[in-house]
């Protein structure tokens, strides 16, 4: 693998720098429908139903849910140390943006288009939401 496909540019929304295992979600995320004590998604019909997002680098298309519950879901996850380490989103909305800034969870969008081909679940990423860079540190399998 070339150095180039290990490094992806992105746009910073909520500052921070962290690393962790990546988890992709096909569906939008409503943080309120995640159990704050385990980080497990409790929303039926969700592609991550029964899986934990705790301490993952969560990649998802968009936020869902009301203007209240997104922030509260995120806050409770954070208080239990079960929140995502960082988030990579395709379409950022105001509620998601404001919640992650206030809860100080790193969030980026506008990631290089080759990201999805090169990165898979369980890979280890370094997300630098200060410089706007994502680095693939280690392949999962």
């Amino acid at each position: 693998m070339t150095e180039k496909s290990n490094l992806f540019k992105c746009h910073k929304i909520s500052e921070g720098k962290t690393s962790g295992e990546v988890l992709f979600s096909k569906d939008g995320i409503c943080f309120y429908l995640i159990d704050p004590e385990s980080g497990v998604v409790i929303e039926r019909n969700h592609s991550l139903f029964g899986k934990s997002i705790a301490n993952k680098i969560l990649v998802f298309p968009n936020g869902t849910g009301s203007s209240v519950v997104q922030a509260d879901g995120m806050y409770q996850l954070k208080m239990h140390n079960m929140g995502p380490k960082a988030m990579i989103v395709e379409n950022a909305d105001t509620t998601l943006v404001a919640s992650s800034i206030i809860m100080e969870i790193p969030l980026v969008d506008k990631v290089d288009s080759n990201f999805n081909e090169n990165v898979k679940n369980k890979d280890i990423l370094e997300v630098n939401a200060i410089e706007g860079e994502i680095k693939l540190v280690q392949k999962g399998e």
């Binding site: 209240v68 922030a71 919640s99 206030i102």
Partner: peptide, 11 residues
Amino acid sequence: TNRESAQSALC
């Protein structure tokens, strides 16, 4: 209006 969150509207 944008689709504000409770917190961004309070700000």
